[in-house]
Nucleic acid binder design. Structure first.
Length: 567
RNA sequence: GCCCUUGUAGCUCAAUGGAUCGAGCAGCGCUCUUCUAAGGCGUUGAUGGGGGUUCGAUUCCCUCCAGGGGCACCA
């Protein structure tokens, strides 16, 4: 039984003696943000004081009196308004640190989703369009969520859904044809799309040309168009694949709109009662669900995003029956997704209950909205390249064993961190200078702390100092160094709870907050003490460093960020 | 007009209804003959306005103001 459970049980018992009945799960027990407030805290006395007509402090004291001794708890104290703070014994903390060191691979994992099959869909770039920083955002969040869910014991499959048909493709092909460009070159595609989109909006003749072209793409009736299409599609996908590799994502399944389109049409057409006709189009009346009506099949007989999405979900379930399907998209698609989900609930209800939608904010430029239609985009590659250059400029990188690799690891870390550090539903104001910064609240800061810890452990090993947790090595004084050491040790023990919390919320930033705090506490401690000082306490300190190292390593992995051993 | 969403320090972000609202950047001042200074230490600085619920509100409810997104054949 964990110490937290012991405390909960104790509180339930004690509360019972003063006439308050609660079950263990409902006892409020938190991890105080402020470490000086202890390792666990409860506001139960504040909560129930009024109910039994007793001042909170009095009640708190009464609860504490009824608590008796709790295993693993060093002290219990009542403070100010009526909080009760618990402190762990050094033994209890040492036991956790020992667990970290002896089974590093398992450190941080939980079994909350054991046996569950989860498919996570993310990144979703469209062939014939740029891979821009918005896709970077989806990728970073999706990859981290996948890993968090994996750490919770679920079997995870990564899926990528790419729009290889639809008006955007027609627009790109139209201008490739017109300009005689080579569709094998991934670089011309984004430009072609921007030009086609512009012409589509400004010229009604072009609009009908492109609309006609779009139909031909679906039915593959035109040889020349097919050739351009096939070449462009292949070039795009190959290009994307290189980016996924750089980002550290390996997809298990690829879905294409070309396949989901017919499937979606089939579902829509088979459910005429759910999808009535309106003005020549086939629609879904979302009003019954407090939403709005959306077109699923256009009057030209082509499926829209909505119909394709239905097809996609059914395809996913056929390919790999899942318990949960998580889709990560930008929040501008929130309302569309709700309509799709409502429609799904009517045609395939058992599937609808397993579908989850996580939306991320938009990557915004300080100058305004980014749009591949107008050609105002920052591509993923250009940003990665720029960051790599900046990292390479560092003397430590250029002098390392493999400068190119290290620079890339740092670049990816900087980008992913900036995306993952904030709650995922919110927009990110993309500030070039800040994104390019490798200092402070950043991915490289975490990597640096990890590398530093790794090097200390290596050096200790070379000097023959073995990590060993030692109860006698717990400093009794209240010096800054001693407090910092205790803080680091205590923070390490929280890692598994943070992972569980972040996985349940599907919120990587909760983990980021924790890791940056741990790295900061470690750096602060490191600056104050000499680890390998030749004293009896050295093995104990090395053990703490090693536990921090392992925690940062696993934590970085969960963020999809590499952990170089030397920087 | 209707629906969703967001307003926290000069800037970018934190804060499972909890304790003195935390970081980083920017500014100022310290800190490398000692295990990695991409580090550490100090310092200045904030909850859009008004109500309400609560022992306690950045968090929940109402309202106003201000941004962003969406609202039938685009994705």
């Amino acid at each position: 039984m964990s110490v937290a459970e012991i405390i909960r049980k104790g509180l339930v018992r004690s509360l019972d003696t003063v006439g308050i009945k609660v079950v263990a799960e409902n006892v409020s027990l938190e991890r105080p943000k402020e470490l000086s407030h202890g390792d666990y805290a409860t506001g139960a006395a504040l909560q129930y004081a009024k109910q039994i007509g007793m001042p909170p402090i009095k009640l708190a004291e009464k609860i504490v009196a009824g608590l008796g001794t709790l295993d693993g708890v060093k002290s219990v104290e009542v403070v100010k308004p009526g909080f009760i703070n618990f402190r762990l014994t050094p033994d209890a903390i040492n036991a956790v640190l020992q667990e970290v060191i002896s089974n590093e691979k398992a450190w941080g994992k939980n079994k909350s989703q054991k046996g569950s099959r989860v498919m996570v869909e993310y990144t979703d770039p469209n062939p014939f369009k740029e891979f821009h920083i918005g896709h970077l955002m989806s990728n970073a969040i999706g990859e981290s969520i996948s890993r968090l869910v994996q750490y919770s014991g679920a079997e995870v499959k990564r899926a990528n859904y790419q729009g290889d048909v639809g008006p955007h493709v027609a627009k790109a092909i139209w201008s490739i044809q017109k300009n005689g460009w080579d569709a094998h070159d991934a670089k011309v595609l984004g430009k072609a799309y921007a030009e086609g989109a512009k012409a589509y909006e400004s010229d009604t003749n072009v609009k009908s040309e492109i609309d006609a072209l779009n139909s031909k793409i679906y039915d593959r009736s035109d040889k020349e168009i097919n050739a351009i299409y096939d070449a462009g599609r292949e070039a795009s996908l190959k290009h994307f694949e290189e980016i996924y590799k750089t980002l550290g994502t390996k997809f298990d399944f690829y879905f294409f709109e070309g396949e989901t389109a017919p499937k979606g049409m089939e579902i829509v057409r088979a459910n005429k009662d759910v999808f009535p006709e309106s003005d020549g189009a086939i629609v879904f009346k979302g009003e019954r669900h407090g939403l709005h009506t959306r077109v699923f099949i256009t009057s030209r007989g082509l499926p829209t995003y909505e119909a394709k999405e239905l097809g996609l979900l059914e395809m996913k379930a056929e390919k790999w029956p899942f318990d949960e399907s998580v889709t990560i998209t930008a929040n501008e698609q929130n309302e569309y997704f709700q309509v799709v989900k409502a429609a799904l609930g009517e045609v395939l209800p058992e599937l609808a209950s397993k579908v989850k939608h996580v939306s991320h904010g938009m990557m915004r430029l300080t100058s305004g909205k980014m749009s591949s239609r107008t050609g105002v985009v920052i591509t993923g590659e250009s940003l990665i390249e720029e960051l790599k250059e900046r990292a390479t400029a560092r003397a430590k990188v250029s002098r390392s064993d493999n400068p190119a690799q290290l620079a890339e690891q740092i670049a990816i870390s900087a980008i992913k961190y900036q995306i993952l550090r904030q709650a995922s539903g919110r927009d990110i104001i993309f500030d070039r200078e800040r994104a390019l910064s490798l200092e402070g609240d950043s991915g490289p800061y975490l990597q640096y702390a990890h590398a530093r810890a790794k090097q200390v452990v290596e050096r200790a090993h070379a000097e023959g100092i073995k990590p060993k947790l030692d109860i006698k090595a717990w400093p009794n004084d209240l010096s800054a160094g001693a407090l910092a050491q205790a803080d680091v040790s205590r923070l390490v023990t929280r890692f598994p709870e943070v992972v569980l919390y972040a996985a349940n919320e599907l919120e990587p930033h909760l983990l980021v907050n924790y890791l940056i705090g741990l790295a900061g506490a470690f750096n602060s401690w490191y600056a104050q003490v000499h680890i390998l000082d030749g004293t009896k306490e050295a093995p104990h300190k090395v053990a703490i460093v090693d536990a921090v190292r392992a925690t940062l390593k696993n934590g970085l992995w969960l963020l999809g960020i590499s952990a170089p051993e030397k920087m």
